[in-house]
Design a protein around this nucleic acid. Structure first.
Lengths: 108, 108
DNA sequence: ACTATAGGCAAGCACTCACTTGCATGTCAA
DNA sequence: TTGACATGCAAGTGAGTGCTTGCCTATAGT
């Protein structure tokens, strides 16, 4: 349908993958991890056996969805979770019916 | 990876599509619509130009994710939104860090 | 300079997904 | 019963996704 993919779609698509949700779990338990740190802890703490490149690509998806912010220091790159995009997500349908949501132009 | 897809994954995947989110919007504004009713209102109210079969398949996804329940009456089939699967979604990462989530076995 | 470490880039592959197409089933009105 | 209406089923297609493979860049330590 060639639908325009905005911020809402990005956040939902990022959350659609179990590995990416586990990454968010790990960042919730210990924020500001590097890529290698995440790979090790995902394996030991969550039984995840993904490769470094796989995790790296997942982190790119999470970052472009606004769920993860990165900060470089020397040869290290730290990843921090940002739950801001999550807040308006569920509230969208948890409001009582009767009020027409209307077209805001940003939802999709 | 042959990952087991549970209820959590189903709900997130169902929400990953803009058309399905618009369907939930429509059901929030007017619950208990039929398939044809939804097709018409999605076109007029949301500028959606999806075919009947496409909407029908989206409704199947939403139903198997537990976000929509159906009720048959004669040749009509009414669709009702169920927001129950949405509630534990965001709370998962909005809790303050420090408490190790651990492996409950149902998250993934 | 040399090596190891931490991460990045890009092509390729298997699989999934959203959608279409075409036909079948079931229900109601005449 | 006949025909219109509401929905269901299934094969096929094109695009997207997750992952691998292989190589490259950049920083830090010796």
């Amino acid at each position: 349908m060639l639908a325009y993919s905005g911020a809402v779609t990005d956040a939902f698509k990022a959350l659609a993958d179990p590995t990416r949700r586990t990454i968010l779990d790990e960042l919730t338990a210990r924020d500001g991890q590097t890529l290698f740190e995440l790979c090790a802890r995902l394996t030991t703490n969550h039984g995840l056996a993904s490769s470094r490149q796989a995790i790296s690509q997942h982190l790119e998806v999470l970052e472009s969805a606004g769920l993860v912010r990165t900060r470089r220091e020397g040869r290290y790159k730290f990843h921090e979770i940002d739950t801001a995009p999550l807040e308006p997500i569920v509230e969208r349908w948890l409001r009582r019916p009767g009020s027409d949501p209307g077209g805001t132009g940003e939802t999709s």
